[in-house]
Design a protein around this nucleic acid. Structure first.
Length: 774
DNA sequence: GGTTGGGATGTTTTT
DNA sequence: CATCCCAACC
């Protein structure tokens, strides 16, 4: 307990012992950064700093949890509990909850995820009658997000001619109006998106000096990990909070800045010295993680970047193996190579699956690896991709829970108001939305007062709306006396979400039911865990946890050892004995989207640096000559990063220069002006032509003629009266079936038919075009 | 108003 | 290849 300083090297020790004033720790990859942070906090506490006065901002919630555990090992569990530790988003979400009223938000505001934001924008763009091709919701969402990350509020936008001109230039003059409407709608819904959690925190601190003073006084010692990946908004929060005591310690590595696409500004770390002139700088340059070959190879690549701080990462570890480079024919073969290699290494070196990690640039690359590992019966786990909480069936249930907490949550309401189907269609929702905009109320409020306002909705639909509302109100009452798990269980049962799925019986439906079950278990675990810890176990707390959770946060320790598969971005801060970096091809890694400017390419290079420095012992770099992308086979060139590694550290498992394949003898451009093939014409093109032809024909056929022409078959009849109970009939899609019952008259006449393929169906005879077989 | 299948369309990375 | 959107159909 008191000899923790002895385990540190000189540079680490200096950083731990530096107590007051601004300081920056430049921490090379694998240099024991977490160790330093942990001990520094523990040391502060031993020096008499109250845990309540320490704020530590980490990059993931998992990192926060692990650090807290390690600190608890030094200072004890009960003291460590009082530390403020977490991601920017989760720490400030918590603060915003307690101060929400000042900003006009309810304390149980909803957190919109990206999907919610995009849906809301889609709806706004539609309501404004804008061309959705020109105003793509996803792109607009991105743009708004970047505004918020650099603190450009709606008003700031309209005061900024440059930004407006840029949008004008992109033929999107209404971006500002959309932005304004989006912000208003979020406010009305009592919702904040991810960026709002930071932007509104800035607003809170700027507008309310007494609030700023309160948190400045509380957070007397502030630490920020992964500082190279903070954005402007985060930078300002930190600056404001640290302004009084100036006890600010930032930790990071400019060579590992990889999140500029979401607003991270590498200048924050590069310019830290300018912000705090009397800053003390510490450099951790000794790498404890990797072999000499890996460290030096990584250095040789990152040396090509121009934008960087001066530092020299070195190691006293063994030289280790050379870095293996493998070329394969296809992405499929790449996967098989990885699986085979993992298997052999496990056998030859007594390793477990969790000693291995496969890294790739894009999530879609996981598939080929996955297939190969599965065939070899090697356990694996994929991180990222579509998270559990994004799945439709899960989001639907969460939307019910969100509505009970905050009935104004527009996106949640729209998801579930007609799921399961209760006869509230698109037209009704549109009318409600218009009314809500007009009265400046939420849709839920409109439903509440539907009898008191002028709205064109018929009484039976009004009834359905009121039934829906009453159901939600009933749930709300239940929620007052029951815990999050109980209420979730009630919702799932009463809304019959599972029942329909169970009836379905398809493999997809079965897995959905399992997912719902898993969600319920997750809520239960959450509650017991929180109660045990003496923390907030409310439904609001759970929903917040879910909104800000990452894949790693949900990882259970009791999972069986498995090979990890993830994107390089997600691998930040992790380490594995064996690392496979796959897909080292031009246009994939570096990405085709990130080769236009020097700074983009430098970020790709940092990404490669991060990937390689995850490895402790052995690294494999693989690339494929052909790869499926968008379902099409394309040729690939090896990545430039392979060329950039100093060759002395490499071991080629395949000859460096591939044998030219047959199609490489032929210059394809020779045929560029050849007539578009008769035989090899793309089917899509043919279909397009067919459609055009059909269109022309349709115009030529008089409409009334079509009506009287039921079908080419004389045996079918539009007003089919010769269908009787017991008939065997044939339907052109459902196949053969037996008529079980008839109901209705004339055009409304329906038959209930038992089909062999699709089960029971009720069909209107008018449309069904049944062929009576007997 | 609900369902379904075809078709268009899009993939970098994520709190 | 996979998802989303829309038209056609029920």
């Amino acid at each position: 307990m008191n000899n923790y300083l002895d385990s540190l090297n000189e540079a680490q020790k200096q950083a731990v012992l530096q107590k007051d004033g601004p300081m920056i720790i430049i921490a090379g990859a694998g240099s024991g950064k977490t160790r330093v942070l942990t001990y520094r906090i523990a040391h502060l506490m031993q020096q008499g700093v109250d845990a309540f006065n320490i704020l530590s901002l980490t990059f993931t919630n998992k990192a926060a949890r692990e650090m807290k555990e390690r600190i608890a090992g030094v200072v004890g569990v009960s003291e460590a509990k009082n530390l403020w530790m977490g991601t920017f988003h989760s720490v400030f979400a918590r603060i915003l909850r307690s101060e929400a009223d000042k900003l006009g938000f309810p304390s149980n505001f909803t957190i919109y995820d990206t999907q919610d934001s995009v849906r809301l924008l889609t709806s706004i763009i539609k309501e404004m009658n804008l061309d959705k091709e020109r105003y793509k919701a996803k792109q607009i969402q991105n743009r708004i997000s970047s505004f918020k990350n650099s603190l450009v509020t709606v008003r700031a936008y309209f005061n900024n001619p440059d930004l407006q001109e840029a949008d004008m230039h992109a033929s999107r003059p209404r971006v500002g109006d959309i932005y304004k409407e989006y912000v208003d709608r979020c406010f009305k819904a009592g919702a904040m998106d991810f960026d709002d959690l930071l932007l509104r925190t800035n607003e809170l601190l700027a507008r309310f000096p007494e609030v700023l003073a309160k948190y400045q006084d509380r957070f007397r010692y502030i630490m920020v990990d992964e500082y190279q990946d903070t954005n402007h908004s985060q930078y300002l929060i930190v600056k404001a909070l640290a302004d009084r005591f100036q006890n600010i310690c930032v930790v990071g590595d400019d060579s590992q800045s990889i999140y500029s696409f979401r607003g991270a500004n590498i200048q924050n770390i590069l310019n830290f010295q300018k912000d705090y002139p009397d800053v003390k700088t510490f450099k951790l340059e000794q790498n404890y993680r990797s072999t000499k070959n890996i460290v030096n190879a990584a250095n040789s690549v990152i040396a090509r970047n121009k934008t960087k701080l001066d530092k020299e990462v070195w190691t006293s570890n063994d030289a280790g193996d050379s870095i293996n480079v493998m070329r394969t024919i296809s992405d499929g073969e790449e996967g098989r190579f990885v699986a085979q290699s993992v298997w052999e290494n496990m056998m030859n070196h007594q390793l477990k699956p969790d000693d291995f990690c496969v890294l790739y640039r894009t999530n879609s690359q996981s598939r080929a690896i996955e297939d190969a590992l599965r065939k070899k019966n090697i356990d694996y786990k994929i991180y990222g991709g579509i998270s559990f909480y994004q799945r439709k069936e899960i989001k639907d249930i969460l939307s019910y829970l969100r509505i009970l907490i905050n009935p104004n949550d527009e996106e949640a309401l729209k998801r579930i108001i007609n799921y399961p189907a209760r006869g509230i269609g698109a037209t009704t929702i549109d009318r409600l939305t218009i009314a809500a905009n007009y009265y400046k109320k939420s849709i839920f409020d409109i439903i509440k007062y539907i009898d008191k306002i002028d709205i064109k909705i018929n009484s039976s639909t009004k009834n359905k709306l009121q039934n829906f509302m009453n159901m939600i109100l009933r749930f709300q009452i239940e929620a007052q006396t029951k815990n999050a798990f109980e209420i979730a269980e009630i919702v799932v049962k009463q809304v019959r979400l599972i029942k329909d799925l169970e009836k379905d019986g398809t493999p997809e439906a079965v897995s959905k039911v399992e997912n719902v079950q898993e969600l319920l278990n997750g809520i239960k675990d959450f509650i017991t865990d929180k109660i045990e810890q003496g923390e907030d176990a409310s439904l609001t707390a759970f929903l917040e946890d879910v909104a800000l959770a990452t894949d790693f946060d949900s990882k259970k320790d009791n999972d069986k050892p498995s090979v990890s598969l993830m994107t390089i971005h997600q691998s930040k801060g992790l380490e594995y004995k064996y690392i496979y970096i796959v897909g080292l091809e031009e246009n994939l890694f570096p990405s085709a989207m990130s080769m236009n400017t020097r700074s983009e390419l430098e970020e790709e290079r940092r990404l490669f640096y991060v990937a390689l420095t995850r490895a402790e012992k052995v690294a494999y770099l693989t690339y494929a000559q052909t790869r499926y992308r968008w379902g099409k086979l394309i040729d690939s060139e090896p990545s430039r990063f392979l060329e950039e590694i100093d060759e002395q550290f490499l071991n080629y498992l395949t000859p460096k220069v591939p044998e030219p394949s047959i199609n490489r003898f032929v210059d394809k451009s020779l045929f560029d002006d050849a007539p578009k093939g008769i035989r090899f014409q793309k089917p899509i093109q043919r279909k397009k032509k067919e459609r055009e032809l059909l269109k022309k024909k349709e115009i030529e056929i008089p409409k009334n003629l079509k009506k009287v022409t039921p079908s080419s078959s004389t045996k079918t009849n539009l007003f089919d009266d010769n269908v009787t109970v017991g008939n065997i009939v044939e339907h052109n899609r459902f196949g053969r079936g037996k008529v079980l019952a008839l109901e209705g008259k004339g055009p409304n006449k329906k038959a209930e038919i038992q089909f062999g393929t699709v089960g029971k169906k009720k069909l209107l005879l008018q449309f069904a075009k049944l062929k009576v077989l007997g």
